Structure formats: structure tokens, C-alpha cells
Amino acid sequence: MASHHLPHHESHGNHPMSVLGYLLVLGGFASAALWLVSMAGGHVAPAIVFGLLMIGAFAGATAIFMTLTHTHHHSPVLPDNTEAELGRYRQRYRR
């Protein structure tokens, strides 16, 4: 049986869960906007649903970011796979 390998590329350094956390933050802001509009329009049921979605999205993003930071010691924002990659990133973008 032949094994197939994906092409190797240099990692961008961001943890995959940080992308999910970012998407949850975006979804939380979208839900907050829909919650506010639904509440202002007098639509109680959609306002409750969007409010719960907002709380869940922000809580999920916070949990992901806290887990990445404290448990995995990986920054959810800075790419830091290795010290060399972190140094290159900081030299290029954080002068």
C-alpha cells in the first residue's frame, strides 16, 4: 500500500482553535446586533434566541482563548510555534 504525503509547508504558527475562537467572536457580535434589533422591534422570541447565541459564542471564545493561553501555553493571537518563528514574526511586524 503506497503512502501519500501532503506537501510540507512552513506553519503560520496560529493554533487551529484560535481560528474557531475568532469565528465565535465574530458570530457573537453578529448575534448581539440581531439581538438588539429584535429587542427593539418587539420580537421577544428571536431576541431571546439571539441573546443566548451571543452569550454562548462569547463564552465559547473566552474558553478557547483561556485554554490556549493557560493550558497549552500558546498565544491565541501571536504565532509562536518555535522561538525562531516568534522572533521572525516580532522582527517583521512588531518593530
Score class of each variant (00 low, 15 high):
2 A>I: 13
3 S>I: 11
5 H>V: 06
6 L>H: 12
8 H>D: 15
8 H>I: 15
10 E>P: 02
11 S>M: 15
11 S>T: 15
12 H>L: 14
12 H>Y: 11
13 G>C: 08
13 G>S: 07
15 H>L: 01
16 P>A: 09
22 Y>F: 09
22 Y>T: 06
24 L>Q: 00
25 V>R: 04
26 L>D: 08
26 L>K: 09
27 G>N: 11
29 F>Q: 12
31 S>F: 01
31 S>V: 00
31 S>P: 00
32 A>L: 10
32 A>D: 03
34 L>D: 06
34 L>G: 02
35 W>R: 08
35 W>Q: 08
35 W>Y: 10
35 W>P: 02
36 L>F: 07
37 V>H: 11
38 S>M: 04
39 M>I: 07
40 A>W: 01
43 H>I: 05
44 V>F: 13
45 A>Q: 07
45 A>V: 07
47 A>T: 10
47 A>L: 05
47 A>R: 02
48 I>F: 03
49 V>S: 07
49 V>R: 06
50 F>L: 11
51 G>Q: 01
52 L>E: 11
52 L>M: 15
53 L>R: 01
54 M>K: 00
54 M>A: 03
55 I>Y: 04
56 G>C: 11
56 G>F: 10
57 A>V: 01
57 A>N: 05
57 A>I: 00
58 F>R: 02
58 F>V: 07
58 F>D: 01
58 F>P: 01
60 G>E: 05
61 A>D: 00
62 T>A: 15
62 T>N: 10
62 T>V: 14
63 A>L: 13
64 I>W: 03
64 I>T: 05
64 I>D: 04
65 F>S: 07
65 F>M: 09
67 T>M: 07
68 L>T: 10
69 T>R: 04
69 T>L: 08
72 H>I: 14
72 H>P: 03
72 H>G: 06
73 H>A: 10
74 H>E: 12
76 P>K: 02
76 P>G: 05
79 P>C: 09
81 N>Q: 11
81 N>E: 12
82 T>M: 08
86 L>Q: 09
87 G>T: 08
88 R>I: 04
91 Q>G: 10
92 R>N: 04
93 Y>C: 14
94 R>T: 05
95 R>E: 05
95 R>S: 07
